[in-house]
Design a protein around this nucleic acid. Sequence first.
DNA 1: ACAAATCTTGCAATCGGTTGCAAAGATGAG
DNA 2: CTCATCTTTGCAACCGATTGCAAGATTTGT
Lengths: 332, 332
Amino acid sequence: MSVTLKDVAALAGVSRSAVSRTFTEGASVSAKTRSKVEKAAKELGYSPNALASSLTTGRTKLIGLISNNFHNPIFLEVFDQFTRALQDRGLRPLIVNLTDETEPANSVRMLRQYSVDAAIVASSTLPPSFAKAFHDAGVPVVHTFGRSATSPEVHVVGIDNVECGRMAARELVARGYRRVGYLGGPQDATSAMDRYRGFMEEVEKHPDLKVSHSFAGAYSFEAGRAEMLRLLADTPADGYFCGDDILSIGALSALRDHGLEPGKDIGIIGLNDMEMSRWESIDLTTIHQPIKQIITASVDLVEEMLKDPERYPEARIFPCRVIERGTLRPRP
Amino acid sequence: MSVTLKDVAALAGVSRSAVSRTFTEGASVSAKTRSKVEKAAKELGYSPNALASSLTTGRTKLIGLISNNFHNPIFLEVFDQFTRALQDRGLRPLIVNLTDETEPANSVRMLRQYSVDAAIVASSTLPPSFAKAFHDAGVPVVHTFGRSATSPEVHVVGIDNVECGRMAARELVARGYRRVGYLGGPQDATSAMDRYRGFMEEVEKHPDLKVSHSFAGAYSFEAGRAEMLRLLADTPADGYFCGDDILSIGALSALRDHGLEPGKDIGIIGLNDMEMSRWESIDLTTIHQPIKQIITASVDLVEEMLKDPERYPEARIFPCRVIERGTLRPRP
DNA sequence: ACAAATCTTGCAATCGGTTGCAAAGATGAG
DNA sequence: CTCATCTTTGCAACCGATTGCAAGATTTGT
């Protein structure tokens, strides 16, 4: 079958310990032994069994990557970045695709069975308690795109959703929209509610505004489109903050169906700045979320937790900024 | 730290073997022992260490999932389906994100270090030799979206790309397009070349047709758009087969920029039928690739290989069909 | 109630590595 | 050249499980 430590040791004429040591960083082996071992290893095509060694070292370099967002195209970018960032640092992503029914306890158990060194919960819709379940089970965890808090119970990396809500509201107001609406993600998503809070907080400073809000059933094209179609059937607002680019794109599709020109007849501002928003046919004005930095920071935190598991939970919140494109009328 | 077999055995007052046996299917344990053990296990919150047991059983239930397609939105659907299909059967996906430089040897080594039970290469752009490298290293492998062959060297699941090329050509001809073009993916992608072959084979039956072809730099929106813009600068064809929906969508964007109406001025037929193609603003006529069936079949094959590693390589090829939408003029 | 057949159970070896410890070897100072 | 010091090495125990085997416990048949 597969070649083991013992085989290499036999061929090289040294003890198993010697072989083990040549493959572990910073162990004491003479140059002579090392070269004998390396020669034998190459000859046999040996490579150490990571799982077996994890038994004694207690480190698997496996990182659980948990998400429930397999329908928002932004998550392909997220997975791309996460998987690369992890493997660049010698860590291996073990994916968990949360379906609606899966309860936290299940994923926690599963990831513990595989002795993951840490877990990353990548979702803006899961509650802080979900991430906390890992922490409580002794699995270091960072909640990426999680709810920001001044004293979080687990590491959180993401943006200030409330502030983004305000930012969007300010932007609509500054461009002279007077009937403004919030079109958010599902009401049980923490991100949707936080963005809503910020939005309302800001618009309430302007008593002359007419304000409305509604929530789509999911962060998806279809949900955004359906919700906007519903709004258009009645008296719509003239400027909307859509809680996510994919909702915005759905909403844009609804507008065009009604022969309305986005940015002229009705304004839309999104959130995320995903690749697609840049497409000429979409050209969405949106709030940029610095995905790359967020992911790098998340993986940084994972590494730091591996060094010091007792590390005090921290929130790393990144600033967002408005990206000017074609779906809002210009500032006066 | 974490609770082990021994702890449970001690608390339950039985041997370690007894505990192990209550947790392994079909082992011989009396009802009495079993209940004692289960009680103790629950009390301690014990769950067996999958990695430790893999040492003796030789099964990790880890499946390597290897891809280089992190920019085509269809792959979010693919990942969604794969991860669910695997975890529904108690298997765990270990992701490898192939960047351009990564050579096969690296991923093979890495996955062997983690003793994956099998590997799935999910890519239409990688050559058969890539998948074969896993096979040669003793890792059971299935190449999903791989090149179909009558006697493949490894399991292949996918579609007949040559036939899809023919199908697209027939469709264009039947609808009266006389100047037809192939706009394919990168030339080093096997799928792009196979689709090209089929397309040419079919159009060459009609000597009166004017035929052209070109290849985009990647399977991406930007590449499709760029290539179509280039074509429009000269004398474009009147009907195109774009080798992938995302290329098509890029091409459509280029057409609209030039004030051309897809389906009227210039016809486009894609391949994949990804979610986005259904969007009203895109409404792409395309060849449907049965992703779900392909993935289910791939995971089926994985399971069968686990039972019988010597299984003879097999190609499972699924039929495709044209989905009529708005980017080709109707058949006469 | 007894022998034979069938179940259960614990012992101990094993999977592929790692690591503390003490002995052996190398190096340097005097 | 001797002794003290620092490296290198192999032994053996261990990580957390599984499993063949033989002994002990139960069940079954008569």
